[in-house]
Design a protein around this nucleic acid. Structure first.
Length: 880
RNA sequence: GGGAGUUUAGCUCAGCUGGUUCAGAGCAUCUGCCUUACAAGCAGAGGGUCACUGGUUCGAACCCAGUAACUCCCA
């Protein structure tokens, strides 16, 4: 029994979430049913819930709940990833607070602290998801560094290595001097920044007063210069061919080399070549056999090879060297210059190109089949526009740097031998056996395992397989049942980082796609279009939001503004709308609760009941179709309108008993009552995926009788689509117009809704208005409905469909105003008819248009003529 | 520099394969209502040169070309 005037979500949310857990409704084990599987995009173990997670997980929960209610064996696997760089940074910070320096402890000690940190803070985000109502199978919760998950990663590494898909090599990589690790190309964010272009003089050897000028944004790297390069076709510099110059300040002599690579009209046309600190210069250096002089330490400070400014940070050095150059007369000028630099996604440090020995995964061979899955439509990207982006990336993919100079992660299973060679094996013991094939003398102490760990994406790339233990045990019952999974819901930003790599690993390990549909959500922005971020402070706290509007309200709010693949401009007012909707449903429920069956009454609401049933089925068709196309916000809106407009505003008003003073409950006939309660229960089912808590709460009210413990909305089966009486729906639409018009008349004439009015109709259509008399009288407060054959003079009139209606009032009609209104209507109809007739008399239209289009035009013509006649009759009536 | 996308009411968005009285929805706004479920509400109403310019077509928000603005991805 419910009495509260408004719905208060908090209590219901706690109650029903634990009830669901207690009764194992989220649990999935393989059985005879068709599986429906989603693996969660594992959030960072360091993460706390933000609006992006809210959106993403709301969508997943809607999908999984709906699948469950369609009788599928629904399995949503939750978990987190170990986020090597972010977590390691957090742990280092924690140690620092305790006065411990990472350098002073061993790898094992560090990992102990890291696990301690993970155990303490790692589960926060998953707990937060429960507040949202996420119906994950929590018994399946995985972490990418669980023992079994790590073993899968190692197995996969070994497998790829064996196939020659993983190699070790010196490459120019993206170095994060703050995280002190390499990061992949995908983890570098390009940013436009205002810099300065420094023009620096290099004096020629043997001609002390002659110099050339180069332009650079990085003067602090001149000490690493290996050459100056000019374009051989540049006539300005022919005298420099074969010469050498001195690097300013340190006076090291370097050659002038020739290469067409240099753009003659950029800067001065003289390019300083610094192979150790620039990707292009590196290539040039290789070509011209230049030495590589690396003047930077791992933390971005200058080392002794720089000779000057040793120990200074690169940016401090830049400022200082500009002064030194100026003092030495080597700085010709500086200019403002905008260019793009790369910053680390994880630490925001400016990326330093650095030559380094790293592990790489060959992408070309793996990319080809992964591209085909998408191009063939085997894996569908939603919305489709991302196929192009995906293709572009996959066709231009570069090898993936998979090693990270960190401790938190899976340590690469490569073992170095004293002679510099290495073997790859699962354990040190196995590695020794491998090593002994090369040289029988080796002992276990000769082996030294690679220090680096694998990129986190290397392990999350296995996620849909490894959560079902499909890497280690490729033929186990779980993987065979749940894989390939059905839908993946994620952000477009990680289409390559993650989605592509899952497709690659799925193909590699199982010869199968990992999922059938990838639903790509947009970025949650504030209403000014700015991305939500901690720095801006423009992101609401999801937990607070749910406290304010209820989890259901927030879920609805998120979905209302989330077209697939487009960014969404989030505003709290959407949550408010969601909360209001919840309240509306609550109150509709309260209304029905106030009714009591009186068996002596007969059912006078058959029309209303049949009509709503048809509308309900129409809505089901619509909703089903929207879901098929992953248009979740449209499906929600169709549901919203079904409930608010059709059920509450029309149906309940049609059948609602008149207030019976003194009665505790309002009497209603048994048939109407049963139908109304039945409709409500069906509505709860349709609403459940969107608003799980409210619907479960109402589901268990006595209104629906006694429920068994397992009879819950969460596992109720969605209603199947029944018959639709389209004629009835169409006719009620006219009736709704009639009622709106009557209300309009009241509004315009300032009449009270309590004053009953007489209504006359002149029927031109085939509608049997007797049938709807009850509805019209009830909703329009009409005292009598009469049928007339002639316009009723002196009455207010309107048209609904093609039929004419007259409301006789005891007040004077403003003839002039009425005349003006009718003339306007007449003018419009004449214009309309003209357009229709123009089409119909156009030979080419008649020849080319499809028959149904022509037929439609004929109907439009007939309707318009009929209306026009009515208007003209009324005009004559006014005149007479 | 290359690629993709977006532009429809004050806001957020639908509008499929060109053809209804096609210019829509929700929110917001305005007017009138504390009408025994709900003011977190009810009843009504107003609001748009479909970014711009051309073209194709009997017919264009929709197709084509160009222009502009914004967004994203890649270099």
């Amino acid at each position: 029994m419910i009495i509260a005037k408004t719905y208060s979500p908090k209590e219901a949310e706690e109650k029903w979430y634990s009830y669901w857990l207690q009764h194992n409704f989220f649990r999935s084990v393989p059985d005879e049913r068709e599986p429906y599987t989603i693996v969660i995009p594992p959030p960072n173990v360091t993460g706390v819930l933000h609006m992006g997670h809210m959106l993403n997980n709301t969508i997943q929960d809607v999908l999984i709940r709906r699948a469950r209610m369609k009788g599928k064996n629904a399995c949503w696997v939750p978990g987190t990833d170990h986020a090597s760089i972010a977590t390691e940074a957090k742990v280092v910070a924690m140690l620092k607070e305790r006065g411990i320096n990472k350098k002073d402890i061993t790898r094992e000690e560090f990992l102990k602290y890291a696990w301690e940190w993970k155990d303490k803070y790692g589960g926060i985000i998953l707990e937060q998801l429960k507040k949202l109502g996420a119906s994950c199978d929590w018994e399946r919760t995985k972490f990418t560094m669980d023992d079994d998950m790590s073993e899968a990663v190692i197995d996969y590494f070994i497998r790829l290595h064996k196939q020659g898909l993983i190699y070790r090599g010196v490459r120019m990589i993206n170095w994060d001097p703050q995280g002190k690790t390499a990061v992949s190309d995908e983890e570098v964010i390009r940013k436009e920044v205002n810099q300065k272009l420094y023009y620096i003089r290099y004096y020629l050897a043997g001609a002390e007063s002659e110099y050339l000028t180069i332009a650079t944004t990085r003067p602090e790297t001149i000490m690493a210069d290996a050459a100056i390069c000019v374009n051989p076709n540049d006539e300005r510099y022919t005298q420099l061919h074969g010469k050498t110059v001195f690097i300013p300040l340190i006076n090291r002599e370097i050659p002038v080399i020739l290469d067409e690579y240099v753009t003659m009209d950029f800067g001065t046309g003289c390019l300083k070549v610094t192979p150790a600190h620039d990707l292009n210069d590196y290539a040039l250096g290789q070509k011209h056999n230049l030495p590589i002089i690396d003047i930077l330490n791992d933390d971005g400070t200058l080392n002794e090879k720089a000779q000057i400014l040793v120990g200074e940070d690169r940016f401090a050095a830049r400022k200082k060297i500009a002064v030194l150059l100026d003092e030495a007369g080597a700085l010709a000028k500086t200019e403002d210059y905008t260019s793009q630099i790369g910053v680390s996604e994880r630490t925001s440090a400016v990326i330093e190109p650095k030559l380094s020995m790293q592990w790489f995964c060959k992408m070309q061979e793996m990319a080809k089949p992964a591209l085909d899955y998408v191009l063939d439509g085997d894996v569908k990207l939603i919305p489709e526009k991302f196929v192009n982006t995906y293709r572009h990336w996959m066709e231009n993919v570069r090898d993936w740097n998979i090693s990270r100079q960190l401790w938190w992660g899976q340590q690469i299973p490569a073992y170095y031998l004293p002679n510099g060679e290495y073997v790859v094996a699962k354990t040190k013991e196995e590695a020794l056996l491998e090593a002994q094939l090369k040289n029988a003398e080796y002992t276990i102490d000769d082996l030294r395992q690679e220090d680096d760990v694998l990129d986190t994406w290397f392990s999350s790339g296995l996620w849909p397989i490894s959560v079902f233990d499909g890497v280690r045990n490729p033929d186990n019952a779980e993987i065979n049942y749940y894989y390939p999974t059905n839908d993946l819901v994620t952000a477009p930003e990680i289409l390559f980082f993650w989605v592509a790599r899952m497709i690659m690993s799925g193909h590699e390990l199982r010869g199968q796609k990992p999922f059938s549909n990838v639903y790509l959500t947009g970025i949650v922005r504030d209403k000014l279009g700015r991305k939500m971020s901690k720095q801006l402070g423009n992101s609401p706290d999801p937990i607070e939001l749910m406290g304010k509007y209820g989890a259901d309200g927030v879920r609805v709010g998120m979905l209302l503004c989330s077209p697939a693949g487009n960014d969404l401009m989030f505003d709290e007012s959407y949550c408010e709308q969601g909360r209001n909707f919840a309240n509306k449903i609550w109150n509709a429920f309260k209304l029905i609760q106030g009714w009591a069956v009186d068996t002596s009454l007969t059912n006078k609401n058959q029309i209303a009941i049949e009509w709503f049933e048809s509308r309900f089925n129409q809505a089901l068709v619509q909703i089903e179709d929207d879901f098929k196309q992953y248009r979740l916000s449209e499906a929600l809106m169709a549901t919203y309108k079904l409930v608010w407009d059709d059920y509450c505003a029309w149906y309940l008003e049609m059948v609602k008993p008149a207030y019976q003073p003194g009665a505790e409950k309002q009497s209603i006939d048994a048939e109407t009552y049963a139908a109304t309660v039945g409709f409500f229960q069906n509505i709860l089912k349709v609403l459940h995926p969107f608003m799980p808590f409210l619907t479960e709460e109402l589901w268990h009210d006595d209104l629906f009788g006694d429920r068994e413990a397992l009879d819950c909305c969460i596992v109720a089966q969605l209603p199947s689509i029944g018959e639709i009486n389209t004629q009835l729906v169409a006719e009620i639409e006219i009736i709704q117009q009639v009622i709106a018009q009557i209300r309009n008349v009241r509004n315009a004439k300032q009449l009270s809704p309590k004053e009953a009015l007489p209504l006359a109709v002149k029927i031109n259509s085939a509608i049997d208005y007797q049938k709807y008399e009850g509805v019209i009288k009830h909703l329009g407060n009409i005292v009598a409905l009469s049928v007339v054959n002639e316009p009723l003079a002196g009455a207010v009139n309107f048209i609904a469909g093609t039929d004419e209606f007259y409301v006789a009032l005891n007040i004077e009609i403003d003839v002039e105003a009425e005349k003006a209104r009718l003339e306007k209507e007449q003018e419009y109809l004449l214009g309309f008819l003209k357009a229709v007739n123009a089409k119909l008399s156009n030979e080419r239209f008649m020849a080319n248009a499809k028959p149904e289009v022509v037929e439609n035009e004929l109907k439009k013509k007939a309707d318009a003529e009929s209306k026009l006649k009515t208007v003209e009759d009324n005009l004559r009536g006014l005149a007479g």
